[in-house]
């Protein structure tokens, strides 16, 4: 008995004016995933959102609860023994999707749930200001919570639907996560108050404001991709050894598509042939947390995923955090 991936879905902006925020992208990815699996949102027991960069950098509520409402996953109260859904956010950089799968795997294996979904999306936080909150000043808050310059990640949403397999040889067999905090400076994202002018529209509306705004800064420093590949290779060698597998027994490697150069550097360091590496097409260039789902979608479409015996998921994130999972389709 293991946890199997029933379907995945991705989404990208299609609105020409204003772009799309992360919440909308996540909604659409979840819809695409559920439709591909032939399941309804009302069947979901559990929803985990793993996106980091969300509309206006919302801290509360969990973005997952808004996605749950948007897609119609039992948003109303189950009055008498009805079917409910539980949702919350995981924040673990580009390893968040795998962390979400790890948590879902647990609740599926415990028997507490039958069906769960990990959704994720990142987009420039300035893009999402249409979230239907009933508060007048929210729009203004959105306009002055800004990104320091060009937002470095591509706006992409992803979703993966997980359920329990009755075949004990199928699905996820193990997960492992490790951190290398000596490299935590190589990718950092923070939001802090920067002094500066106040937009006149806001100053007129709310007099006496402190001049400035909260600004998001994301810094990827040189050497991140190379260090990420080294750390991932170190962790993956130990992981495969504990699983009793040689690198050449991995039929398919699903790595984080980013940082650029990571899939090739990591597969070479691990010793997995290049033709066994799941890659994303150019349209997903710069993807962040949805990366593993985008890579998985491609190999599910070609059949490479279904034909594999041993699939290794390998994600890297700020920290440096390495997430690994072994999966048997």
């Amino acid at each position: 008995m293991g946890t199997k991936i029933d379907a995945v879905g991705t989404s990208r902006p299609h609105l020409r004016v204003g772009g799309m925020g992360a919440i909308k992208l996540a909604d659409e990815a979840a819809h695409a995933c559920l439709e591909r699996a032939g399941r309804s949102a009302a069947e979901l027991d559990f929803l985990i959102n793993a996106g980091v960069y969300r509309d206006n950098n919302i801290g509360e509520p969990a973005v997952a609860s808004m996605i749950q409402e948007d897609i119609g996953a039992n948003p109303d109260p189950p009055l008498q023994g009805g079917h409910g859904t539980f949702s919350f956010d995981v924040v673990n950089g580009a390893c968040g999707v795998l962390t979400g799968m790890h948590i879902l795997d647990g609740f599926l294996m415990s028997g507490a749930i039958d069906l769960g979904i990990v959704v994720t999306a990142d987009a420039d936080p300035e893009r999402g200001s249409n979230w239907d909150f009933p508060f007048g000043l929210v729009g203004a808050a959105g306009r002055v919570s800004r990104s320091h310059s060009r937002f470095p990640f591509a706006p992409v949403g992803g979703a993966a639907l997980l359920s329990r397999s009755e075949d004990e040889d199928k699905g996820f067999s193990r997960f492992a996560f490790s951190t290398y905090s000596e490299f935590k400076h190589l990718l950092e994202a923070e939001m802090s108050w920067q002094k500066g002018p106040i937009p006149r529209a806001v100053a007129d509306r709310v007099p006496g404001l402190e001049p400035g705004s909260n600004v998001l800064r994301i810094r990827e420093r040189e050497g991140y991709a190379a260090r990420a590949a080294e750390c991932a290779a170190t962790s993956a060698h130990a992981f495969l050894e504990s699983a009793g597998l040689e690198p050449l027994e991995i039929d398919l490697l699903v790595p984080s598509p980013t940082p650029a150069g990571f899939p090739d550097a990591f597969s070479q360091a691990l010793g997995v042939p290049a033709d066994r590496v799941a890659r994303v097409d150019e349209s997903f260039r710069g993807v962040h947390t949805a990366g593993p789902i985008a890579a998985l979608e491609g190999v599910m479409r070609t059949g490479q995923f279904g034909d594999a015996r041993n699939v290794l998921f390998a994600t890297v994130a700020s920290g440096i955090t390495v997430g690994l999972a072994l999966y048997h389709p």
């Binding site: 950098n57 919302i58 409402e69 000043l137 002055v144 909260n214």
Partner: peptide, 23 residues
């Protein structure tokens, strides 16, 4: 746990536009 998400938009916390921290 259960999430009654039809009420998800009754409270919002986000970076503030009037000073450091959040509103």
């Amino acid at each position: 746990f259960a999430t009654l998400s039809e009420h998800s938009r009754l409270c919002l916390g986000a970076p503030s536009h009037v000073g450091p921290g959040a509103s």
